[in-house]
Write a protein that binds this DNA or RNA. Structure first.
Lengths: 196, 196
DNA sequence: CGTCTATTTGAATGTACTCAAAAGCGGTGG
DNA sequence: CCACCGCTTTTGAGTACATTCAAATAGACG
């Protein structure tokens, strides 16, 4: 199990003693996922928070007309879960699958509670990363309210530069809330305008 | 200072001893705000998280064309802040003002840290309410990606029934991401269709 | 009661979508 | 190693949802 990345990620927010690191690592369950494989289907209970050691996952819904809408990408170094379901332990609304072969570390809800009991500092860690995630969804909400599709795309490129050339364009369209056809046309226009 | 509501609100997530309640309440600073009065201007540092004891506040941005976009309402019993600014203590992007005369309790960032040091349970409380807030922004993001304006309005009515008849309609339009004119037309259509 | 703000209404416009089809690209097997 | 297949991207024409701008009406607060 490769634990270097996750420990580094945690060290940015709280300081752990070797003993505490050990407690934490023992609660994690490594898992390999192939491209297109599902970690979670809508309606299931999300029993784990998942840290991505390598590869890239996505969380998305399917609407009444059968269209996919991507809520989040989780490239290397990110956490992903159906937060609603993880918190309530009721059936969720997200599908989670892999865009590329991936290696992840899973932390079950029970193990997380056990972790909080043994090493209360982790309450702080998860509070802080939840706060940061909250802020990014707030910014995204404001983007959706105030920006044109073109500006949302430019923002996406600034925020996720590593994804632009590593995932199919249609997923970016789905994330920013336009059709793949329209994103294609926008990009063509942007090239003509020299914005690209 | 009226502390009943905030204590009840906290009791839903963590159990406090009388001593701990006392520590907490001493860190709060009560404040009265009149309608249209600002608690925070964009660019300022958000030094307090604010709990609304009575009245209603809103957080919003103004875009490049001068249009307001409401990120959040905070009716009685809710917290509000410019989370980005509160976390980083750098200049924020939100304006916060009162839609009605309000009474609030302010918790400064410094006092919050002091609270965490004295009563670590509060890490848990703020983690949990941040998680819930995160989920609601995730749902809102999915609504923005997948629903028509009419369905976003219907969702708003289900989620904030108390606001529908207590705040000007144009603020609801701003929150769901349409112009006031269009919301007015939608409502008329919905009445014709008998959806209302 | 008067004034200021919010809401409604209508016509013209624009941004993004739908549907259909062609072109491009990448992986896999022969 | 090339050819084929499936998936992604591009292109185009027609359409729909929502906006803009302007003006009239309604409503709320001092």
């Amino acid at each position: 199990m490769d634990s270097e990345l996750i420990l580094k990620s945690i060290a940015r927010h709280i300081a752990l003693e070797p003993r505490e690191e050990e407690i934490f690592l023992k609660l994690l369950q490594p898992l390999k996922i192939k491209r297109k494989q599902f970690l979670l289907h809508r309606g299931e209970v999300c029993r784990h928070a998942v840290f991505v050691n390598s590869g890239c996952l996505r969380g998305y819904t399917i609407d009444a007309n059968g269209f996919e809408h991507i809520l989040s990408f989780a490239p290397t170094g990110w956490w992903i879960a159906d937060m609603y379901s993880y918190i309530t332990q009721e059936g969720g609304y997200l599908n989670i699958d892999a865009l590329e072969d991936a290696q992840v570390l899973q932390l079950s809800k029970e193990h997380q509670e056990s972790l909080f009991a043994q090493v209360p500092k982790f309450e702080r860690y998860y509070r802080i990363i939840t706060e940061k995630s909250l802020v990014s969804y707030q910014l995204r909400t404001l983007d959706n309210l105030s920006l044109t599709a073109q500006d949302r795309y430019l923002n996406f490129c600034r925020r996720y530069p590593s994804l632009i050339n590593s995932i199919p364009q249609k997923y970016i369209a789905s994330y920013i809330g336009v059709t793949p056809e329209f994103l294609s046309k926008m990009r063509k226009d942007m090239q003509k305008q020299g914005l690209w």
